[in-house]
Structure formats: structure tokens, C-alpha cells
Design a protein around this nucleic acid. Structure first.
Lengths: 259, 259
DNA sequence: GAAATATACTTGTCTAGACAAGTTAGTGCA
DNA sequence: TGCACTAACTTGTCTAGACAAGTATATTTC
């Protein structure tokens, strides 16, 4: 076992079609996939208005001649993909919105740069305890005037400034935060270790850098930037709030989505 | 059936603990959830190095006293969340990267504006057939010099320009594209109908508007914008390529992610 | 030693049946 | 009419067993 990360075999059952399978003549894809694809296709064709009641599991069982567990898995995955809403006791309904949920992978910037085969180094400009401003206190869920940790770090890719990371941290969640050598370990990486079970909310927008950010990134204050604001919580308790500023053109977020 | 979109009941089995359940004394959460949480916790604590072999389904069955289907579902969901890699025949491995995959919901801009309780209207500035430039031809996977459809539409929220949508469409996928009244139906909505089973790749970046975009959005050419580039394909066949330009401050992409 | 084979173990999936729990509509009673 | 109750139907989950298919290792054969 060398490489655990491995492409999933997309097309199975390719060669080797035994007489047994050939007689049944169909299962090139797994039954639960067939049910999924059938419903996806009909949903896409608009067979059900948004919010309309779709066939029950029992009906699909009869239609496809498979067990309920198989139908259940198909429907459960469609729900996960946001294509249907299921309500226990009521039924399965076509999703209200034509929302397309995309998965976009956010990686630690250190790993991201290294994966491109480039070098990463960070410069620490602020790393101290501060009295939280009203806004910061609210975002971190601490009392106004409480002590919070504040770091300002610039990440470079091959020596070029790529990201200005302005971060506030709730001391109760990471009391030893300021003892970390941020030229060796990124805050993201450290916080992941300290408070691993986290959920977060982020927003991405374009904007202009502050005077300090412009200086640290080597920009004019009129140069556009991509700004990611991220607030991380652990079971509802705020851990950290970060503003990540990237010079336009040098950074982009990529992702892909599937139906 | 009024509101199909409904919060999932997070904590079930709340009241009403029958004698039968009380005797077993535990299942406040479903067994497959318990297995999931157990493994998540140990993963977070670093019990397995990235890439390390984790317990097999059979071992977990013995440990938790549940059926293999239950363990299988727990592991399958962990795989979906990117926390483990599973290889048929080999086993389950702790995920290599500390990647955090986020789900971000991209909606049709018309629905998005309406959901905010605001009015949407669109102005069409270009809607014609063109000879594809080299770059566009490559992106749409057509021969250089081939005919393609080109639309340039500005979307307004409460009368304020919100998005400049510069779009090229492969005529083979949507031959009647230009016949659509884009003041009533957005291109995204129409294309979703015509070619519903699609996958896409997108990138988000900050940048400056072109002269035309600045004029249409009522901006100076030095005002920063959030630019989304999206290329949509259907089973590998390119359908459409769009550049969506938004004035900074008036638009942001939001999302959330969970472990 | 190298190649082919056998075997043990892994995950992937399906089945048929079961019970729990939520929703809906109809029924009967006050 | 209004209310409580019931019955039918829905999804949520679990079980025990089965077979298929991929992987890794040990074994045999050349």
C-alpha cells in the first residue's frame, strides 16, 4: 500500500461480463446508481415541479424490482446533493431551488504552495495579546474589552507576497497560541490541531487593501484584492476570525460542481 | 405540506424514553452516528497518522456490536467527507491531507435576488452569433473560426447593477439559445433546462473591469470587481463559458464548511 | 530467483424483513 | 362544529446473511 490517495474506478464491470451478468443484461452500473440516475434525469426534465411529491420508496421498489434499502440509499444521496427534500412520515419532494451545491477544497496555504512545487515562507508582523474591539469581541463571542490574541502574518510564495493573514483568536480555545513559531507552522495548521472538530462560515469578496495590507503586500492602495473572511467555531463556540487578503491576479479560488 | 425545506431534527429520541430503550442505555444517537463520531474523534486526536491503516469493518462490527451495514454506512459517510480513503480489497486509511472540503451553494442570480425580497431585472446588450476567437474556441472546444453564440447581460437588483454576465455558448448544445427572451429567463436557467446533467469548473478572483464592463456597471475602471469564471460541460462536452463581473462590496460569495 | 497460483482478507453492494417514529386523513364522539 | 383518536402510509434505521470484486501475501511451480 503505497499511495492511499487513489482514483476511484469509475467504470466498473468493464471487461469480464460473465454469462450470469449477461443474461440479466443491464447492471453496468449498480442498482442504486440506476435509481439515482433515473430520478435525476426526470428531475432535470422537470417531471416534478419544485416542492412536488415524488414517488415513495415503496413505489420505486415495485418499479425497479430492488429492495427498499437500495432505493433508500439512492434517495438519501439525492437528498445529500440537495436535489430532493425528504420528510419522515410525509414523503420525498422535488427540491425547491435549482441550487447547485459545489464542493470546493480549501487547503492550508502552506500545503497549497508546496504542492505547486514552490517555496513558502511567512513573516510575522504582529503576534500579541490585545483588548478586543467591539466588532472583534462580537465576532469571537467574548465580552467587550476581553483579551484576545492577534496575529498578522504575510505568506510568500517563492518570495512574492501571496496572502496577508489578519487573525484574532479566542484565548480560551488556544491558550498557547502565541507561543507557536508561525514561521514554521501556519495558524490554520496549529488551530486544526488544537480544536479539530470545527465548522466555519466564510465569505469571499473583492475589495481594496487597507493601508497596512497594501504596504505588506507591496501594493498600491487602489489595487484590487480578493478578500476571504472566515469565522471558525467549534460546536458553536467561536475559535478564530481571519481576514485573508490576496493581491488580485496572484490568487484565485477554484472549484468544481456536479449535479 | 407547506414548507418542504425543513430543518432536520438534530436530536431525536429526546423525550419518550421507553423502558426498552432505557435498559439498553445509550442510543441517544443512531448507532451509525456513534461509530462515525468515535472515528472522527480518534482521527482528530491523531490516533492514526495520515495514510495509516484504520480498523476494518469487521473489527468495528466486533467492537460496537452492530451489523456491518451500519459500520459500512459510517465509513462511507466519512469517506464522503474526505476524512478517510477507502480502497476495495485493501482497507480504510486515514486521509492524507488536512483538506477541508466546503460546500458552497451557487444559485441562479434571479432566484437569489428574489429570495432577498428584491426585484430583479436584466438588460440585454449583446445577443448574437459571432466567429469565435482563438481563446473562446479553445474554451468551448470548437474549431477556431466556428460560429458561437455570445450574450452580454447586466443583472440589476432593485435597479442597481449587480452582475455583468459575458457568456459564450456552444450552438450545438443549445441551438435555440438566441431565441430566448433574456429579460424574462436567465441564461443559467435556460441552459439548465436544455442541458441539465452538467458539471462545471469555476474560479473566483478579484480584478478590474474592462472598459465596457465598467460602463455597464456604472464603475470607474479602477474600481475592483469580483470576477467568477465558469466553464460548464456536459459529459465532457463544453456547453458554455461565462465571465461574471460583480462590483466589489455589492456582492460576495458565502459558504460554510464542516469536518 | 522469477512467475504463476492459491488463499485470506478487504470493501462494495444487495436482499428481505423488522421496528421506530413522523405525517396525514378519516372516523366518531361530545 | 370542533376535537380526540385511529389507521394508513411515509421515511429512518438496523440486522444477518450473501455474493462480487479488488488487494496482499504466502505458496507452489518452473
Amino acid at each position: 500500500m503505497k499511495s492511499a490517495v487513489k482514483a476511484r474506478t469509475a467504470t466498473k464491470f468493464a471487461a469480464q461480463l460473465s454469462v450470469k451478468n449477461a443474461s440479466i443484461l443491464a447492471p453496468l452500473t449498480a442498482p442504486f446508481e440506476r435509481v439515482k440516475q433515473h430520478l435525476k434525469g426526470r428531475l432535470a426534465l422537470g417531471d416534478w415541479m419544485p416542492g412536488a411529491l415524488m414517488p415513495s420508496e415503496a413505489e420505486l421498489v415495485a418499479q425497479f424490482g430492488v429492495s427498499r434499502m437500495t432505493v433508500n440509499r439512492a434517495l438519501r444521496e439525492l437528498q445529500l446533493e440537495g436535489l430532493v427534500d425528504r420528510v419522515q412520515g410525509a414523503g420525498t419532494f422535488a427540491a425547491q431551488l435549482n441550487r447547485v451545491s459545489s464542493t470546493l477544497t480549501i487547503r492550508d496555504i502552506h500545503e497549497e504552495i508546496l504542492q505547486r512545487g514552490h517555496t513558502h515562507h511567512a513573516t510575522v508582523h504582529i503576534a500579541k495579546e490585545e483588548i478586543a474591539s467591539a466588532i472583534v469581541a462580537q465576532r469571537l463571542g467574548v465580552a467587550a474589552g476581553a483579551r484576545v490574541f492577534h496575529t498578522l502574518i504575510v505568506h510568500h510564495e517563492n518570495g512574492v507576497p501571496l496572502q496577508c493573514e489578519d487573525r484574532y483568536v479566542n484565548p480560551e480555545c488556544a491558550p498557547d497560541y502565541l507561543a507557536v513559531d508561525f514561521t514554521r507552522v501556519t495558524p490554520t495548521h496549529y488551530l486544526l490541531d488544537v480544536a479539530p472538530l470545527w465548522e466555519a462560515h466564510f465569505s469571499v469578496q473583492a475589495g481594496l487593501p487597507s493601508a497596512r495590507e497594501a504596504k505588506l503586500l507591496g501594493l498600491k492602495q487602489t489595487d484590487p484584492c480578493l478578500i476571504v473572511s472566515r469565522r471558525t467555531t467549534n460546536r458553536g463556540v467561536p475559535i478564530t476570525q481571519a481576514r485573508l487578503t490576496h493581491p488580485a491576479g496572484h490568487y484565485q479560488i477554484e472549484g468544481q460542481y456536479k449535479p
